[in-house]
Amino acid sequence: MTEARDIDILHFCRSQTLRHLMLMVRSPSEVINPLLFFLLVIVLFPLGLGPDPEQLSLLAPGILWVVALLSNLMICMRLFVDDLEDGSLEQLAMARVPLSIAVLPQLLASWLASGLLLSLVSPIFGLMLGLPLEVAPVLVASLLMGTAIMLLLGAVGAALTVGVQRGGILLALLILPLYVPILIAGTRALNEALQGGDPTVALALLGAGVTGGLLLAPLAIAAGVRVSLEL
């Protein structure tokens, strides 16, 4: 971390990403728990709605996306907490690399361990809810992009609430309204695929969201981290 000042940004980012991935490997529960949460909530729906596969497959896009939203929220709640406690967030803010770039490696590591993983196993959950296997590519693609945007937006909220007592529920209040467009586009893509329509419009919108989020969110995250550090 300290040697980062004289090396170029790419190297810095690589070592930071590896550091965060290592941290996750050392405490695998943080990676596995959101997935288990995802699975558990999905199990609750057939129990609550009844086992009728037709009805379930009708509701599946909405269920999958809402649960993805919630499990993403869980990940965001943990995002900067440890780093603030052990002081590495402060180190990050003082590094030569601009803070808006310096926070990205952690997000990338989080996304690899949560969004990517979730997207890849999501077809299994889809099958459990009666989604046909043909829509699996659309499901994976929409979740890949959707989780990335959600993580970027959620990181803004996490940066703002990390220093606050009981920040978790506050975080949910702050960022869930901002997730609305992602939910709409994601379920739209799935519904189109289910009904034999064209999901590319919705997927393209999600892609635009990723691009825009990557451009703007880091600035807001950096500003939020600065506010939290000054407390």
Partner: peptide, 30 residues
């Protein structure tokens, strides 16, 4: 809900000038 979020964030911070900056970031994102 966006309004309520701003109010809740403002109330959550002890330091009110930091609270104002946090809310400013949030409203701009909003």
């Amino acid at each position: 809900f966006l309004y309520v979020g701003v109010i809740a964030l403002f109330e959550a911070y002890e330091n009110k000038s930091a609270a104002a900056r946090a809310c400013a970031v949030l409203t701009l994102v909003g």
